[in-house]
Design a protein around this nucleic acid. Structure first.
Length: 212
DNA sequence: CACCAGGCAAGTA
DNA sequence: TACTTGCATGGT
């Protein structure tokens, strides 16, 4: 399986090249983006992030001061705006209380404890927590998403009902724990999911993994 | 028009 | 435990 997972990575890497994830100017922006992109197209998230930047509000303290109603109106384009405004507030309260809004202080904490902490914040589930750990804090954590589940199920590398933890262990047990590798691998799986391994009209015959 | 997008929490049985 | 539903905009 180690050989197989590395082969898949090499094929995707050769087919698609560098994905340059996570698209953001800083770690805090990654976190906000991670919450806004829940079940949402990234394009719509970018518009919301741009609005926050235009208003010079994309910092922990500034965002914490904004009324939740105003925050919701600013992130409208990302969908679920009332829900996500509340979730951003939940995270901000946690982030400011525990780390004073400092990414560096947060990153110093023990990884397993930090993951549990994040999962304790309302609105942050496994995928969002792991996205924050990997893409904002540069921790060697593999992110599992709907695309990864579908791709591995289609290619018979996992059962259809394999859960988050099972899939994550498949990667972490068989790959070198390398932040750059985990970063690029997940980004490539998303790319493959978008371009080939769709629910409808999957392009299986011309998928870079066809026959693997 | 229908369907989907880089999920999560709460409710039900 | 294992489903189901609400959340909501914008692109194809």
């Amino acid at each position: 399986m180690k050989r197989k997972l590395n082969n898949i990575f090499l094929r995707l890497s050769a087919a698609f090249g560098p994905q340059h994830w996570w698209p953001a100017e800083n770690a805090f922006e990654v976190i906000v983006g991670a919450i806004l992109t829940q079940n949402t197209n990234w394009q719509n998230v970018e518009k919301a992030l741009l609005r926050l930047k235009e208003q010079k509000l994309l910092t922990p303290k500034k965002l914490a001061k904004v009324r939740v109603e105003k925050l919701a109106s600013l992130i409208k384009s990302a969908g679920y705006y009332n829900l996500k405004a509340a979730r951003l507030k939940f995270f901000l309260r946690y982030f400011l209380r525990n780390y004073g809004g400092s990414i560096r202080r947060m990153a110093r904490r023990d990884l397993a404890d930090l993951r549990q902490e994040l999962l304790g914040v309302k609105g942050i589930g496994p995928e969002t927590a792991d996205s924050i750990l990997l893409y904002a804090l540069a921790k060697p954590v593999f992110v599992i998403d709907a695309y990864t589940k579908r791709i591995f199920s289609r290619h018979k590398l996992a059962k259809e009902d394999a859960d988050y933890s099972w899939l994550q262990q498949l990667f972490t047990r068989n790959l070198k724990h390398d932040v750059s590798l985990f970063n690029e691998y997940h980004a490539l799986l998303v790319k493959l999911g978008k371009d080939f391994c769709r629910k409808k009209n999957p392009k299986c015959e011309i998928c870079p993994l066809y026959g693997q």
